[in-house]
């Protein structure tokens, strides 16, 4: 072995070992990550305003109307399978928070037909909160929606502080609203 290679050989072995350890460390970190957690570019940013026609009547629903409240914004559609799974949870959450003045729940009917959406609600039960219509998905694009269902939580300052992809659980909603409930009690 030449002096040069005898000098570099332990160095290369160390570099290789360090790279292997780094890879193992990253894999270990990955084991503890929630695969349903998809980072949103909008966390910490102001929620996009919207003014949509309501699904139930001819009135409009705007985010501006909920200024100063903790808001849950749920994107749903009649064609979305996971939306059926979370439907009962959302109805329950709507009932649970109906008497909490600083909390508001809003549904956004995303890329759907009004008739189909109303039929869906008739079959599974209406939400105890209003839903706006987003037939072209423009509001969904404003929020960076990938696939349904997606739920966004907005604080009283109007900033998005949490986003959940997939069917949401009641515990997750309560956990997200924990600061609001602390303030209300």
């Amino acid at each position: 072995m030449t002096p040069l290679s005898s000098f570099y050989s332990p160095l290369l072995k160390s570099v290789g070992l360090a790279a292997m350890l780094a890879l193992l460390f990253m894999l270990y970190i990955g084991l503890w990550r929630d695969p349903s957690h998809i980072p949103s570019a909008q966390i910490g940013h102001m929620a996009q305003t919207f003014n949509l026609s309501k699904l139930s009547d001819d009135n409009f629903i705007a985010l501006e109307d909920y200024k100063g409240k903790w808001v849950m914004l749920n994107f749903w559609a009649s064609w979305c399978g996971a939306c059926r799974t979370e439907h009962a949870t959302l109805v329950q959450a709507g009932k649970d928070f109906a008497n909490t003045p600083n909390i508001a729940l809003i549904g956004i009917n995303y890329k759907d037909q009004k008739e189909k959406a109303l039929r869906f609600l008739k079959r599974l039960g209406a939400f105890p909160y209003p839903s706006g219509q987003d037939p072209r998905g423009r509001t969904g694009i404003d929020y960076g929606v990938y696939g349904l269902p997606e739920t966004y939580f907005i604080n009283p300052e109007g900033k998005i502080f949490f986003r959940h992809v997939g069917a949401i659980k009641l515990e997750q909603i309560k956990k997200a609203f924990a600061p609001a409930l602390k303030g209300a009690s």
Binding site: P39, A41, Q42, H45, Q48, Y143, G144
Partner: peptide, 8 residues
């Protein structure tokens, strides 16, 4: 689009 969907 970057503001909405991130760097992805």
């Amino acid at each position: 689009f970057q503001q909405r969907y991130g760097n992805y």
